[in-house]
């Protein structure tokens, strides 16, 4: 294991994020705060409680997840896509680092940043709404697991994409809709029975439900199912990535 190599990739990626802090840190925090203001403080006060918590507090876990998914994917996909696009990937490929170390460097940096952003948004939310965290360890665990899983997913997209449009299309067309329809703003028990069943095919439901459980102790699905589904998706991503490096797909002709 070349720790030096992992460290070099990780630090370079973190430096890139700091360099673009306005776009990569300020922007997600501001846009998530807008949701808090509109849905939490303004509209939320006129809505009834959901699962025993005020609406403003109820949407916090979902909004953080929404942000976490998007940021993890965009950071990791951009991180590996740019060297492919500019050609600087030659250096990574010619270096004595293993595929595993490359993934740890890129995905680790992307996940780190997402987790930090998640915590930052959580702190910011405090300005607008009161909330409690019943299971802080689980909360951090979920944050971490989701950040890693979706950074891996982002890495795959960054390898697959052969243009900037493809880089954006999956987060925009698939992940955001799934997150919105996955119970960010409502409990799925509010839906008619048919749509409740449909919703269970949406993987994001399990993430949001589990994360919300760590805050308020109430969930749409059992916490074990949430963790299990996330781990399944994580494993899938790892399998795809190992296939990518085994075949050299779009990285190594």
């Amino acid at each position: 294991m070349s720790l030096q190599g992992v460290k070099a990739i990780y630090l370079a990626e973190m430096a890139r994020m700091l360099r673009t802090r306005l776009q990569s840190i300020a922007s997600p925090v501001i846009s998530t705060s807008l949701y808090f203001i509109v849905f939490g403080a303004a509209i939320g006060t006129r809505m009834t409680e959901v699962d025993g918590v005020s609406y403003g507090a109820f949407i916090i876990p979902g909004l953080i997840m929404l942000m976490l998914l998007n940021e993890s994917i965009s950071n990791a996909s951009f991180g590996i896509y740019m060297p492919r696009f500019t050609g600087t990937i030659y250096e990574i490929l010619s270096a004595p680092v293993s595929p595993f170390e490359i993934v740890v460097g890129y995905v680790g940096a992307a996940a780190t940043k997402s987790v930090l952003l998640g915590l930052l948004v959580l702190l910011t939310a405090r300005i607008f709404v009161d909330y409690e965290i019943q299971h802080p360890v689980w909360m951090l665990g979920f944050l971490l697991l989701t950040a890693i899983t979706f950074s891996l997913f982002g890495f795959i997209i960054g390898v697959w994409a052969d243009g900037f449009e493809k880089l954006q299309i999956i987060p925009l067309m698939i992940v955001t809709p799934l997150a919105f329809l996955g119970g960010s703003f409502y409990s799925i028990t509010m839906l008619p029975p048919f749509w409740q069943t449909v919703t269970l095919f949406n993987p994001v439901v399990y993430l949001i439900s589990g994360f919300r459980w760590s805050f308020y102790g109430a969930a749409d699905v059992h916490i074990g199912v949430s963790v299990g589904m996330t781990l399944v998706f994580l494993t899938l991503c790892l399998l795809v990535i190992s296939w990518i490096f085994r075949t050299g797909y779009r990285i190594k002709p």
Binding site: S2, G5, E91
Partner: peptide
């Protein structure tokens, strides 16, 4: 510096 680190030095 990145280059040197990548090569494990």
């Amino acid at each position: 510096r990145l280059s040197r680190g990548l090569f494990g030095k």
